[in-house]
Nucleic acid binder design. Structure first.
Length: 427
RNA sequence: GGAGAGGUGGCUGAGUGGUCGAAAGCAGCGGUUUGCUAAACCGUCGUAGGGGCAUUAAACCUCUACCGGGGGUUCGAAUCCCCCCCUCUCCGCCA
């Protein structure tokens, strides 16, 4: 959500910047709706002022014991008029709010202009993809062969796009969660939180999933509860409608949660394996900062995510998303992409974004220093990392010619094994 | 799930139909006093939106809305009625 006064004053510049995202801002529509809305508000308020004044008169007359039947009928007439006007105002404000709520954030000036993911720019690359003396397998073959990944039974229990992890497969997932949380809390300065996995509509509005992207989120019947699509939602909304002490920022939080996404519109995409599931596990990093420090913190956040891959010895590259590929709420995003031998490609494993005040304005997250005026905080988040995709990266990058998988050094104490062998534990 | 008690400004807490945006206290801010600290005293102190406004912004004036949320009654609602949400206590049930 944009600041209204700023938006009005800089409409043309904003419209042009937004067009780099491949979206057209109808400035004429905005101006017309805004002035129509304001005219209606002014009219309704003028009438209300009149009603209040005349009501006071009635009060005075009554105290003098005078008859006020005529005045009362008159004010009742004003009241009816107000009621009719209020309906107009409400309709216009709803329309206006929907319009404003659907306008994406402005890309930061450092974001390259482009149309699609092809225009994203690589900013760095670490590690070397492993050389295999055999044809490396994809995890959707390796997993079942190792007896650690089971799609058939998941489909029976729930449906497509779900998986069951067995034995060391399940333990590898859990080990990754613990490893990531330990590194972030002990070495990167984050505080661990464990939030609710169901969130309400107000929270989804705060981070920008609602109203535009309701179709991507699972909704509970008969409750205003939704399954969290990412820990970004519950964790960012922890401070909704609060004013933070600016001198104590940044606040760095990390959280493990399962994430649930309907994946509407992704039919036929990544149908094999666990790259794109309705449920996946993620460790998320969230920062609340002052306005002036958010871009430095974005660099740190991204480095914190990359550090996990470094420690696991997984090759990756980091790209900066171009204007056309940027998410709705984000001003600047780095995607960290891990190398997957089974697909012979880099695949997104973390997405680190600075939302500036865009979410804070929606969610009412302010920061105030001493006697200073409260300002909107800046919010950031990034995966640190997507656990399922890290699982895939380990299985595919560390596969051996005999079909086994070596556990990376950093993870051994967590998995309590050095290797996953094809015998398997699935029954 | 059942019974009861609550939800008012940064906090505590009064207010049960008519200048109530809301008493009082605390905290905050400005000032007087003061060797320093403290105290005392005086003043000030919510948020959002509209209009005045014209080239932006600030300041100022003014109006409107906001006493958990949404409806209703009334000339007029923090106050009365209905629905919902949240918190606390007890019972039941469960992990």
């Amino acid at each position: 959500m944009h600041d209204l006064a700023f938006f009005r004053a800089n409409l043309d510049a904003i419209g042009e910047r937004i067009s780099t995202r491949g979206m057209t801002l109808d400035r004429t529509q905005f101006r017309e709706l805004d002035s129509k809305r304001r005219a209606a508000v002014t009219e309704a308020e003028t009438l209300r002022a009149r009603r209040n004044a005349e009501s006071q008169q009635i009060s005075k007359l009554k105290k003098q014991g005078l008859d006020t039947t005529g005045q009362q009928a008159n004010v009742r007439g004003i009241g009816d008029h107000i009621a009719a006007l209020e309906e107009q105002v409400k309709a216009l404000e709803d329309e206006f709010r929907t319009l404003m709520a659907g306008i994406p954030n402005l890309p930061h000036e450092s974001v390259p202009v482009g149309h699609s993911s092809e225009d994203n720019a690589e900013v760095r690359r670490r590690g070397t993809p492993p050389a295999f003396s055999f044809e490396p397998k994809a995890h959707w073959d390796l997993g079942p062969e190792l007896g650690i990944l089971d799609f058939e039974r998941a489909a029976k229990v729930t449906g497509a796009r779900f998986a069951v992890y067995w034995g060391l497969g399940a333990r590898l997932e859990r080990a990754l969660i613990n490893f990531m949380l330990d590194v972030h809390t002990r070495e990167h300065g984050y505080t661990e939180v464990l939030p609710p996995f169901l969130i309400n509509s107000a929270s989804l509005f705060g981070t920008g999933q609602l109203p535009k992207f309701a179709a991507d989120v699972f909704k509970c019947e008969n409750f205003d509860f939704w399954l969290a699509p990412t820990a970004e939602v519950p964790v960012t909304n922890l401070y909704r409608d609060e004013t933070l002490d600016a001198d104590k920022l940044p606040i760095n939080l990390c959280a493990y949660t399962p994430c649930f996404r309907s994946e509407a519109g992704s039919y036929g995409k990544d149908v094999r394996g666990i790259i794109r599931q309705h449920q996946f596990q993620k460790v998320e990093l969230v920062k609340f900062t002052r306005a002036g420090q958010s871009y430095d913190e974005l660099e740190k956040l991204t480095a914190d995510a990359e550090d996990i891959l470094n420690r696991l010895g997984l090759p990756f590259r980091t790209v900066i998303l171009c204007t056309g590929d940027l998410g709705f709420s984000s001003a600047k995003t780095y995607d960290v992409e891990v190398w997957l031998p089974g697909q012979n490609a880099f695949r997104e494993i973390s997405s680190c974004s600075n939302f500036e005040a865009f979410q804070a304005r929606r969610a009412g997250i302010r920061a105030k220093s001493g006697q200073g005026k409260a300002e909107y905080a800046h919010t950031l988040n990034g995966s640190g990392l997507a656990v399922g995709r890290t699982w895939v990266a380990i299985v595919e990058n560390y596969q051996q010619s005999d079909g086994s998988v070596i556990i990376p050094e950093a993870l051994r104490t967590y998995v309590d094994a050095e290797r996953i062998t094809p015998r398997g534990e699935m029954r």
